[in-house]
């Protein structure tokens, strides 16, 4: 009876030792990622965007430059793209260009949308989107440009600085 008791105890000890082989020691280390707000934008001009008006029809109906700009946005925030002009009117170039041609004769729209948005000195929203890289379809698109001077202004050469601003929503 005494011998049987010893055998069982020894076996138990052996198992105890074997099980401990699988046990480990762990040690943690703290790490922090500080992800900052980030927005970048590239605008490429895809073509010559000079407008030449040679007929009353062109001046009344306007001239459209489809896909005049390609916009790429990379951001980790929802964004808003707005457009504005540096000055309320075009800058007249040369002695024959006396007219104050307003910036509102210029319009922009996201390609494949319907209505043009007039350019003004106050920023006007042109497009919105969400976080993601420029491979996200929402963050890469084209803009159509249209100029419609009408018949109320004298002829001449004019230039305008257009400002695109992307900001977090």
């Amino acid at each position: 009876m005494k011998k049987i008791f010893i055998l069982i105890t020894v076996f138990s000890t052996f198992l105890n030792g074997r099980l401990s082989y699988g046990q480990g020691i762990s040690q943690p280390v703290s790490a922090r990622l500080s992800v900052k707000s980030f927005i970048s934008m590239k605008i490429n001009k895809s073509q010559n965007i000079d407008f030449k008006f040679n007929s009353t029809e062109q001046m009344e109906q306007g001239i459209t430059k489809p896909n005049a700009f390609n916009v790429e946005i990379k951001t980790n925030q929802n964004w808003n793209l707005s457009v504005s002009s540096l000055t309320p009117n075009f800058l007249a170039l040369g002695p024959d260009s006396q007219t104050l041609l307003p910036s509102s004769i210029l319009g922009l729209r996201k390609s494949n949308t319907s209505s043009f948005i007039s350019v003004a000195q106050n920023p006007v929203s042109l497009a919105t989107g969400g976080r993601g890289s420029s491979t996200n379809g929402q963050n890469q698109f084209n803009l159509d440009l249209k100029a419609t001077p009408g018949l109320n202004f004298d002829g001449g050469s004019f230039t305008l600085v257009v400002i695109f601003t992307v900001s977090p929503q």
Binding site: V29, S30, L33, V35, F38, K74, G132
Partner: peptide
């Protein structure tokens, strides 16, 4: 760019 701006804290655990 799909991760929102924030501080993200982790433990890196070696065993």
């Amino acid at each position: 760019y799909t991760i929102a701006p924030e501080n993200y804290d982790y433990s890196i655990i070696f065993t």
